[in-house]
Every structure is written in C-alpha cells, then in structure tokens.
C-alpha cells in the first residue's frame, strides 16, 4: 500500500478546495447519497437543458478528502457533456475503480483522464472505495431521476 498514491497532490487540492460545492440554481434533477457507516453524505444537483446537455452540475455535502475530491473532479468533468456522454464517463470511472487498469472512454481529454486516474489509489484500500464512488452513484440516481436515496450499504 502506498499513501502517496492515495493522497496525491490533486486529491488533496480538490479535497481542500472542492469545485462546484454549491447548489445549482434552477436544477431539474438531483439525488442524495450517504454512507451510513461513516456519516458521509452528498447531494448532487443537475441542470439538464432541452438538448440533454448538462448545463450545470454541483454538489453539497461533507466527507473525507477522497470523497470531496472525487465529487469535485466529477462535477468538473461532467459539466458541458451530454447525458449519454456523462453516462459513458460514469461507467468508465466505476469500471476503472472496480477492475479496469485504465480508462477507456474517448470522450475525455488526456488531462482529465490523468485527474480521474489520481483516484485509482483507492483500489488498494477496499474500505475507501466507497468514498470515491458515492458521488458517482448519486449522480447516476440524479440522472435517472428515480427519487431513490443512494446508500453505500444497500
């Protein structure tokens, strides 16, 4: 295990100064997620326009450096994408965290991929994987608009 891989500079920076930590005005999709084991919670807000493009995305909540950084990077990358592109990015990220060594998506720029790969350090810390994936599962729920609260323990 390697702490340096887990707490990379980008993670610490995003954890300290999370982007899009606010509530989108006029959001039309949202979902809440929580991790009952540690009390982390996140609320993701989306504004999807008529062309099904993510006009704005934001989140509120509190959590560890990993979960805050993950939500921060996620919202940064999803903003401006179409809903289909967003879904592809989400699948790609969750696939990478779960088993794939690399990201496969061609939508993301190399820079963005590098940022996302910074979160791959959690793969060595099974107890921390949920910290990295909570906001992403919550985003899926918001996009599907199923009104379900996401829990890491379901």
């Amino acid at each position: 295990m390697n702490l340096k891989e887990l707490y990379q500079e980008i993670i610490l920076e995003h954890g300290k100064n999370p982007r899009n930590l606010r509530k989108t005005e006029n959001f039309n999709k949202d979902a809440k997620g929580n991790n009952p084991l540690c009390g982390d919670n996140v609320h993701v807000y989306l504004k999807l326009n008529n062309q099904r493009k993510v006009e704005d995305i934001s989140f509120e909540g509190s959590g560890c450096a990993i979960s805050m950084a993950s939500a921060s990077i996620m919202t940064d990358l999803i903003k401006g994408k179409s809903d289909n592109e967003a879904k592809e990015i989400i699948d790609d990220f969750l696939g990478m965290i779960k088993e794939n060594p690399e990201l496969k998506s061609t939508i993301l720029e190399e820079d963005d991929k590098t940022k996302l790969m910074c979160l791959s350090g959690v793969k060595q810390y099974p107890m921390r994987v949920k910290c990295a994936t909570l906001s992403w599962h919550t985003l899926i729920s918001a996009m599907e608009d199923d009104g379900k609260q996401v829990s890491t323990e379901d």
Binding site: M1, L3, L6, Y7, L37, C38, G39, D40, G63, C64, A65, I66, Y125, M127, R128, C131
Partner: peptide, 19 residues
Amino acid sequence: HPHDIATILDEDGVAIRAG
C-alpha cells in the same frame, strides 16, 4: 476528515476507529 486520519494512521500499524 476522520477517515483520512484512520487510513494514514493504519499505514503505521495504528488501529483506531473513525466514524
């Protein structure tokens, strides 16, 4: 965050609880 504390402490063999 306490979870980050616990992970970092764990690296030194220090077992605490966070949550």
